[in-house]
Design a protein around this nucleic acid. Sequence first.
DNA 1: GACACAAACGAACGATCGTGCTTTTTTGCA
DNA 2: TGCAAAAAAGCACGATCGTTCGTTTGTGTC
Lengths: 195, 195
Amino acid sequence: MVTTTKGAVTKHAVLERAVALASRVGLGGLTIGTLADDLDLSKSGLFGHFKSKEALQVQVLDHAAERFVEAVIRPALAQPRGVPRLRAIFENWLDWARSSPMPGGCLFVAAATELDDKTGPVRDRLEQLQRDWLGVMATSYRKGIEAGQFPADADPDQFAHDMYGVMLAYHHAHRLLRDPRAEAHARHAFEALLP
Amino acid sequence: MVTTTKGAVTKHAVLERAVALASRVGLGGLTIGTLADDLDLSKSGLFGHFKSKEALQVQVLDHAAERFVEAVIRPALAQPRGVPRLRAIFENWLDWARSSPMPGGCLFVAAATELDDKTGPVRDRLEQLQRDWLGVMATSYRKGIEAGQFPADADPDQFAHDMYGVMLAYHHAHRLLRDPRAEAHARHAFEALLP
DNA sequence: GACACAAACGAACGATCGTGCTTTTTTGCA
DNA sequence: TGCAAAAAAGCACGATCGTTCGTTTGTGTC
């Protein structure tokens, strides 16, 4: 066990709870007061760990990103490159969007439409994270091209764009419309992207 | 000109402004105060037209839906059914998402992730509107099937799901990532949905 | 032009927000 | 065990939120 000071433990618990809360109410809907109540902390006690609400929001994004890598990306790296790995990423993402630590659906999907018209460090961090995420999909597809699984003249960025579109459509159908066919539609659409 | 009382005129102006504002800050981000300031009205004067903020939000959705029908759906009905009409719907939607009355992108896209975890009349209205919207695309595709333009065993709901996914991916790439290739990617993805 | 009504205003309310202080409690190390 | 530092609490602030109320201004009709 590495040396974990008391403050770090609390801060971790706060971020854990904040990620779950923000997935339901958005990053802007996060409130220091309700967050403190949920964790039996005082507002000022919680606030002390972050110098501002904006800093809290950025760290919430970073914390969710770490979880995302562990849940979606890292396990997929155990799969062979190309199609199997892309399929694993896709399935892992479906699980991620329904996982218990994300009771309101994928935090990044919610944050994307919430922050796209704002400016500042929170938006900047989210934009970078989403760029990286699309990059992961594009890179994985590129390796599939090199392995001869996809047409040599195919555009990896186009594929990443399309694949994320399938995920966003699933998110919409599942969470807003509560469509029980959302998952089936998503899988069908994803398979249609493969040769 | 039909009889337009004074109150109806201001209410219309308020809704017009509110739709534009909500496209940037969301329906929850709408504030009676800033809305009143923008229109040189008093908070209470504006508030009197709506009995609650919730009622305002519902009427904002309805107002945007009317605009949406006029801008996206109605003009497309002038096109021949099937592929040409679907293409018109798609192109009109791209214009809609960049139109001046929607400076923050499509209001419905923003509201979808904002409201999907809430309950109440605002969420209910949005869900119904989005169901109708997907229904329009599915119906148009179904007519294409009847005209022999698509496989007879194709699923119109699957197509509508996929087509909206293309739009959502465009919205994400264009508004959050400011990707200049967003439009090209979207058009390419849409064409890939057609035979 | 008088009169009834709609529309807009101005001020205030309780609540909640993020944030800054000061004080108390807890922690971890010499 | 003692003590400095960290963590948490307590309290208050200015601002802003949706909403209510009483009043003033404006409109349209006989």
